[in-house]
Nucleic acid binder design. Structure first.
Length: 347
DNA sequence: AACCCGGGGAC
DNA sequence: GTCCCAGGGTT
């Protein structure tokens, strides 16, 4: 076995963080941790992991839960398809696989929400299958140490790093190697200000020798940011009732709940927004207040406006798919972050 | 291959 | 403001 893998694993055993999913061999819990940590830093996902496995201790508990319940646990974490796909996969495991979690890469990757990374992670960590993970950390560490300047978001660059990583994963403990490589990227070989001075690879790192540390990995293509103008109507009547609607379209926040929405293509005044919408329940309503905020996502900038309206509901006018609830029960529904912030603010 | 999907932390 | 995080699904 190579000096690289041996040294890395020794480093890991001395420096690994104390994290709950490293103390279990239950593939269900390892799976939950891997899904939560997709595109999510450990510090952001840690409490969600603890709450999630507490709420759904086994794959049967998750399978038997309602989707709204699962999404409520996921509220605020983002990328909600992870929760929906994990719920669907839990049903598959519980009902069609008799609760026995797939124990190899080829079966794991068939489950919804499990792609090449997660299948490699679970199969190597739980079953010591010889699979190698390639995540953002692995891309960064290996392109720097080996001086690879092929764009990592090209298929050529991906394959180059995958092949290298798999060759380096030549110690017998493949799961530990994978976790060590990712941990090294997360703690030492960070995107900004990596700790090159104390790095165990400082003598051989091509990027350090050639002054390319802050240039690698190379990524081409910049994404365009879409601007959207979301006007929500927070209507409330004398009995503290309000209207919500489940987002079921293929868009951000699918499966979460929102107040009645009027989306415009550009900034509009409240008067224009209200006059151009055909919600019957706002007839004769008076504006209590208007709350504006900007919510920045990776691919979209959302200009959020929440118009609070005092109304008297005429139940016959409630459109289909809209629900009348007591505002005191709003906490039972998973809300997009900006709406959750609003509700917490006015309570 | 290109695009979509959240939220937050570090700088 | 910029970058990117223990990625995956869809088209």
């Amino acid at each position: 076995m190579s000096r690289f893998s041996r040294g890395l694993i020794v480093w890991y055993k001395q420096n690994e963080r104390d994290l709950p999913w490293r103390k279990t061999s239950d593939p269900y819990k390892v799976w939950v941790s891997e899904i939560i940590l997709q595109q999510t830093r450990v510090n952001q996902g840690l409490n969600y992991y603890i709450n999630f496995v507490n709420c759904f201790p086994t794959v049967f508990d998750l399978a038997n839960a309602a989707e709204d319940e699962v999404l409520k646990q996921w509220e605020g974490l983002g990328y909600y398809s992870r929760a929906r796909n994990m719920h669907a996969a839990a049903k598959e495991v519980a009902y069609n696989l008799k609760g026995e979690f797939p124990n190899n890469y080829d079966q794991l990757i068939k489950l919804k929400g499990i792609g090449p990374y997660t299948a490699a992670a679970i199969s190597s960590i739980c079953y010591n299958e010889h699979r190698t993970v390639v995540d953002g950390n692995v891309f960064r560490v290996l392109t720097r140490i080996f001086g690879i300047d092929t764009p990592i978001n090209s298929s050529k660059g991906k394959k180059e790093v995958e092949t290298l990583a798999h060759e380096l994963n030549d110690d017998g403990d493949h799961g530990t190697f994978n976790q060590a490589l990712m941990e090294f990227g997360a703690i030492y070989c960070t995107p900004k200000l990596p700790k090159c001075n104390g790095c165990m690879f400082k003598l051989e790192c091509v990027a350090l020798k050639t002054g390319m540390v802050d240039k690698l990995p190379v990524k081409e293509k910049k994404l365009k940011i879409r601007h959207r103008f979301l006007n929500f109507l927070f209507v409330i009547d004398q009995n503290n009732q309000t209207i919500i609607q489940r987002r079921n379209e293929n868009d951000i926040w699918k499966g979460l709940y929102q107040f009645p929405l009027i989306e415009t293509s550009k900034e509009e005044s409240e008067e224009i927004v209200l006059s151009n919408c055909n919600y019957a329940f706002i007839k004769g309503a008076t504006i209590n207040s208007v709350n504006s905020s900007k919510h920045k996502l990776t691919h979209q900038t959302l200009y959020i406006r929440i118009i609070s309206l005092q109304v008297k509901f005429d139940n016959t006018n409630l459109p289909p798919d809209y629900q009348l609830i007591n505002f005191n029960d709003i906490g039972e529904y998973a809300l997009p972050k900006p709406l959750d912030n609003f509700c917490k603010h006015i309570l």
